[in-house]
Nucleic acid binder design. Structure first.
Length: 425
DNA sequence: TCTGGGGTCCTAGGACCC
DNA sequence: TCTGGGGTCCTAGGACCC
């Protein structure tokens, strides 16, 4: 039996989330902006039609936005994450096997489902649209890489009506189609590789499909070699339906304005380390190290640049906010130099292992570990009940002069009681 | 004035060992 | 003049993804 893998991908997901709760945005040109209202991270079709590219700085679009009445939303990740969970949960009930691939994409195993797959996919689309208000497109093929391409086709061609099934095509028709798609569209072929491939005369997906795997392995890597096999319908990348624990946990942000003094940086670093450690505890892990970096604004080319980083090893792996913050502060004081305007800081937890596999030693201070665990559990419980940040370390501060700008943020309709959507009669 | 955030995997090269 | 060979582990950096 031929393998059938579907890729379900939400259409301009963040914009679609905003539209679910603000129907007046329907049919209008809408963008969602990154943190600090910096760059465009999601564009409605109307905005794509204006030729506006992904990741363009918003301030460069002010004119065109005014002319066309583009509506800009600040990003509201709490809302998107919640809607994503609902989409994924619904999908999990519609297929025997699921891999949640990203916030807005999921692979589904359709092999063995007797309903014609394109028809089945249309039912999935209708169900998600009806229950959650989110539009999706679906690509179906015999490998993940091909399913991604099929999804691309489904999105681009109105004739597909949101679904494209490569398995239903003849080899010849599929090859003709692949010949019309640029090699850069292939999953795993980024800017660098596609430029090199082009230079080698490999311009279309079909060219790559027909390449010698050995040659590609020699000139690129095993990764791209595997891609060729996948393009030829041999499934090499399996569906993984457990989300593995993170091996590193990052919290980094640009500041709303440049920071020049150490105390403000210390506040930010404590805030970021606190967030990262919360994520760490959520996956029941402990970290053996914490890496910290600060950096000036690279876009200010004329200014002197400074972007140091430092890695601190913990005596023992831990999930205690106090210990990890202390280590981060210690590192910050080592790399901080006055005289620079800092634009961004980030912390990364590394050497992450499950809490359950904490190495034991004779010298463990069992009581201290238990106390720490109890305190952190309480801290998390209070913050869950009272809202994130209700209880925090004093060093994080309350006046965050450096906090990000968010000009037009929607309410957290689904996750905060105080921001529920109330419809009056 | 204004340029995101969070991840994974692979490879090359150095340190170190026998 | 001429300086082995093979293996492992770790790290930094590149490339890619959404």
């Amino acid at each position: 039996m031929q393998r059938a893998i579907a890729l379900v991908d939400c259409n301009n997901f963040y914009v679609s989330c905003e539209r679910v709760f603000q129907p007046k945005l329907e049919g209008k040109p809408v963008v969602v902006l990154s943190n600090n209202d910096g760059c465009v991270v999601s564009r409605s079709q109307e905005v794509r039609d204006l030729g506006i590219k992904m990741a363009v700085p918003w301030f460069q679009l002010k004119d065109i936005a005014k002319r066309h009445g583009i509506i800009a939303c600040s990003s509201n990740y709490g809302l998107y994450a919640d809607l994503s969970n609902r989409v994924m949960s619904l999908l999990s009930r519609l297929a025997p096997w699921q891999e949640v691939y990203s916030i807005d994409e999921s692979f589904l195993e359709l092999t063995g489902i007797s309903t014609p797959h394109a028809e089945y996919a249309q039912r999935i689309r209708a169900k998600i649209k009806q229950d959650l208000g989110i539009p999706v497109c679906i690509g179906i093929a015999s490998s993940k890489t091909l399913a991604k391409l099929a999804n691309h086709v489904a999105k681009k061609n109105a004739r597909c009506n949101g679904v494209c099934d490569f398995n239903a095509m003849t080899e010849q028709n599929l090859d003709t189609l692949l010949e019309s798609i640029e090699v850069a569209e292939v999953w795993g072929v980024g800017r660098r590789s596609s430029a090199r491939l082009q230079a080698m005369g490999i311009a279309t997906v079909l060219d790559l499909k027909r390449c010698s795997p050995e040659r590609i392995r020699d000139e690129f890597s095993v990764v791209l070699q595997r891609t060729i096999a996948e393009l030829n319908g041999m499934s090499c990348i399996e569906l993984d339906n457990v989300t593995p624990d993170k091996q590193q946990i990052i919290c980094s942000r640009s500041f709303g304005s440049l920071i020049t003094n150490l105390p403000d940086l210390e506040q930010a670093v404590i805030a970021y380390a606190t967030r990262a450690t919360e994520k760490l505890r959520r996956q029941k892990s402990i970290a053996g190290g914490i890496q910290l970096y600060i950096r000036t604004n690279p876009h200010l080319g004329k200014e002197p640049q400074y972007q140091p980083s430092i890695l601190m090893h913990m005596d023992e792996p831990t999930d205690d906010t106090r210990l990890l913050c202390r280590a981060a502060l210690h590192g910050l004081r080592q790399i901080y130099r006055s005289g620079y305007g800092y634009q961004k800081a980030g912390v990364m937890l590394v050497e992450i292992i499950p809490r359950a596999s904490r190495p034991r030693s004779l010298f463990d201070d069992v009581e201290a570990i238990q106390k720490s665990h109890a305190l952190m559990t309480t801290l998390d419980a209070i913050n869950r009940r009272m809202g994130s940040g209700a209880l925090k370390l004093l060093g994080e501060g309350t006046h965050k002069s450096w906090a990000a700008r968010r000009g037009n943020v929607s309410r957290r309709y689904t996750t905060e009681w105080a921001e529920l959507l109330v419809v009056s009669a």
